[in-house]
Structures are given as structure tokens and as C-alpha cells.
Design a protein around this nucleic acid. Structure first.
Lengths: 233, 233
DNA sequence: ATAAAACTATGTTTTAAAACACAAAAGTAT
DNA sequence: ATACTTTTGTGTTTTAAAACATAGTTTTAT
């Protein structure tokens, strides 16, 4: 009986969602080809226009997927949390990356050559179905986002971003502070507004006792009201 | 040897992209469960909040997928042309529909119970991969759209919509008129603007000899300029 | 064929958000 | 510690697009 390596133990736990769908042979194939890579805060993971070559899975840390738009103005498309897959869409669309990805904080990423994954899909419909599920969910979020970002006012968009950050990364031990450390500029790029507007609107939320801020840490005081602001736009 | 039915002939041609990926047994399963349904102009095909039950494939006509947003303001999310699949995303995301679909003109739609398709995926990775490709492409378009619709000005958004309509539905025999008949309101809902702004901006395009209009028919006079307006936003 | 409804067109007013400007504070590097 | 850069905060001005108003035209339904 083969000795179970440290890597195998680590990956089989980290990637348990797909690991359990694989046969022994498939597991070995994954294991032999997977690399574990670390990124420092604000380090780039991939660039717009690069060729996609790996399926990535965020094991630790936080990643932002963003696009640079008109006049270099950046729009955060989605935030990745552990354990989520990313970086594979472009390959399956037969495109180059249309987004960039960077580490929001120190990250551990598992990278698997995307061709390996494609081959696994071909022989393993259940595995493919899992990614159909992931893509379908992302597409639903994207469709919803088009409406939110175009139709809601700044207050509604900022409120929605704060709630979505809370849902993604959770709260700290105090049960109120959103567990992410980001600049007002990032908050603006997530919410489709200028940095000044993010700063100003966040300030009014503070005055209205909806949130409290301590530097970049944001504490949600009145989530119901925040949700309502997000809902009515 | 079994007689080849009219339906089989029709579907094997219409759905040739996936038909050729299927075994005899799978083809029969598809055939036995597929229904051909007709819709009249502006008839609803499915509604937001409905349960998704079928994979749909548009065989003839034009379909719009739209969301009703803040204050009932409608946003067209994408336009479907023959032969494209739609209506399956929500099922694979395990959600209800977050969009509605309606016939833009008289349509023929092939409907296949989505559970049948899911089963086919499980046993046929190549088929699943085909839909991974479709979803990946749609997600890329959605990501791009978030930036276009939020960052471009009305002129840029309208120009982009006109070009995308041309790419989707092509031109009439004159080699200039976009092959779709839609109201200014639909054009506005596609481009994230008010109806007045769509009317006004289209008028200025006419004055600038970029397009010509004859009622709802739009003729592209200067595509280069239109593309440039779309590009610079 | 006619009336009703929906759509197109254009002018005017209002408004939300961007752009700009500057100062203070907080990080970062040397 | 010091200078330098980035980020935050607020006030002011400008502007693009929405909102509103009204009339003419086309489409649709009876």
C-alpha cells in the first residue's frame, strides 16, 4: 500500500469537494500535476490578456478578480474566498483572460494545468457537472450585478458591497466587524463609484449609525437598515 | 432498421452541435423527451421566479432574456439567436429563474426536460464540456458587460448595442440594415438608459450620418465610427 | 375603418454623481 | 527619525443623464 504523502493529505482535504468524485487513477493524476503557490499581499496572480493555463483554487487568503475599464478605471468583478476555484473560465471559453487577479492578502493557491482538468471532465461527467454548477452560479451573480451596478444609487451599491463582503468573508470575533481589510479605493472599485464617493457615502453611513469605522475596518451596526438601503437601491 | 421520423430529421439537424456527441441510446432519449413549441411575438417563454424545468434551444426567431430591476425598470441581459441554448443556467445553479424570457418575434423552441440533460452530462463528459464552453463564454460576456454598462457614456453604450445586434442577427440584403425590428424602449433596456435617451442619442447618430433610421429599422452607415464610439466609451 | 394605446420626438428642468481642489492623516521606505 | 507616498476626508463646481412635459406619429385592437 502506497504511503500517503503530505501533499496528498493536504490536497485531499482542501479540495475535498472534487477529490471525492475522482477515481484512484484520477486522484493520482491530479496530485502529480498540482502545484501549491504562495502570493504576497497585492501580488498579481494572472494578467488580462494572458493565456489561461491553470485551474486555480484558493486555499488560503483573499483574491480579487478585476478588469481595467475606460481610462484605466478598475472594476472589481468578484472576490474569491477559500475554497473557491478561479482562473479557468477563459480557457473553456477559448479566450485569453479578460480579467486580472491579485492577492488581497497573503494567499495559498493550488494550480492544476487546465488541460488535465479538461481531460478529467471528458471522462468524468459528475466532475464536469460540478463545474457547470459553479459557472452557473457565477453567471447568475454576474447577471444580477449588471442590474445592481447600473440601477442602484451609490448608497445602495455601497450597502450591497458591504453585505456581500460580510457574506463572503464573515465577521470577526466581535460579531460585527467585516473580516477584510481594504482601502476605500477598492471599496469604490467593487461598487462602481469614485473613491471620493465611497469615502463620503461611508461617512454618511457612520453618521447615520449604520456602520462604524476604525481606519479600514468596518463594523456593521445596523444590518437590517443596510440591507434595506441595498434593496431599495 | 428503424424508420427515421420527421422529428428526428429536424432535431438531428437543428441540434447538430450536440446530436453528434450522443450515442444511439442517448439520441433516442433526447428524441423521446424533446418537444417543439411555438411562441408568438412578445409571448413570455418563462418568468422570473419560475422553476427551471427545461433546457431550451431556440430554433427559429429571436428571444430576449431580461430582468426587472429597481422600480420595475427592465434590463435586457442577453439576446438569443438560433441556434442557441438558454433557460438552463438557473437549474444548474439550483435556483429559480432570476430572469424572464420572451419572444421578440415568432419563435420555435425545442424544450428538453433538464433532468434528462443532467443525466446525459453525468454519463457523457464531452457533452458536459460543450455546455461548460457555453457557460464560460456567457460569463465572459457578462463580465465585460458590467464594465461597458457602468463605465461607458450613453453614446458608447448605444453604439455597443447596435454593433452587438448586428453581430448577433446580421444584416439584411442591403448589407447595412440590422436584421432586427425593435422599439426604442428595447434598445434603451439593452443599453441601460432611458427611452428618451435612446431616442435622442439615435437621432444624433442620424445627424452625424453614422446610422440612418426608417421607423424601427436601423441602417449602419459608418461602422468604423460606430465601433470607435463604442470603444472610447 | 376607427378609436385607443403605445411609441417617437424634442425641448426644458432637475439631480445624482463625477471632477476638481486642497488639507490632514496614515503608511512606507530610507 | 525623516521624508515621501498613499490614503482619507470634506467642500465646491461641473456635467451627464434622468425626469418631466407635451405633441405628433405609428401600431394595435376592435
Amino acid at each position: 500500500m502506497a504511503r500517503i504523502s503530505k501533499k496528498e493529505k493536504y490536497l485531499s482535504t482542501s479540495l475535498s469537494d472534487i477529490w471525492n468524485m475522482l477515481s484512484d487513477v484520477e486522484q493520482k493524476q491530479l496530485l502529480d500535476n498540482a502545484r501549491i503557490i504562495h502570493f504576497k499581499t497585492s501580488e498579481m496572480i494572472y494578467f488580462e490578456d494572458d493565456n489561461p493555463e491553470d485551474l486555480m483554487c484558493l486555499l488560503e487568503g483573499k483574491v480579487k478578480i478585476f478588469k481595467s475599464g475606460i481610462g484605466g478605471r478598475s472594476q472589481i468583478i468578484r472576490m474569491i474566498r477559500p475554497v473557491q476555484y478561479f482562473g479557468y473560465r477563459a480557457y473553456f471559453a477559448r479566450e485569453q483572460y479578460v480579467t486580472s487577479a491579485s492577492a488581497f492578502e497573503a494567499c495559498t493557491v493550488c494550480m492544476i494545468p487546465i488541460k488535465i482538468i479538461e481531460d478529467l471532465f471528458r471522462g468524468n461527467g459528475a466532475l464536469a457537472l460540478h463545474f457547470i454548477h459553479l459557472l452557473s452560479s457565477d453567471l447568475g451573480v454576474a447577471d444580477q450585478r449588471v442590474v445592481s451596478l447600473t440601477q442602484k444609487h451609490v448608497r445602495g451599491r455601497l450597502a450591497e458591497s458591504l453585505i456581500s463582503l460580510k457574506e463572503s468573508y464573515g465577521l470577526e470575533e466581535d460579531g460585527a466587524t467585516i473580516n477584510i481589510y481594504l482601502t476605500r479605493e477598492d471599496l469604490a472599485n467593487l461598487s462602481n463609484m469614485t473613491t471620493s464617493n465611497a469615502i463620503r457615502t461611508l461617512s454618511t453611513f457612520v453618521n447615520e449609525r449604520i456602520v462604524a469605522i476604525d481606519g479600514r475596518k468596518i463594523k456593521i451596526i445596523d444590518e437590517d437598515r443596510l440591507r434595506n438601503i441595498s434593496r431599495i437601491g
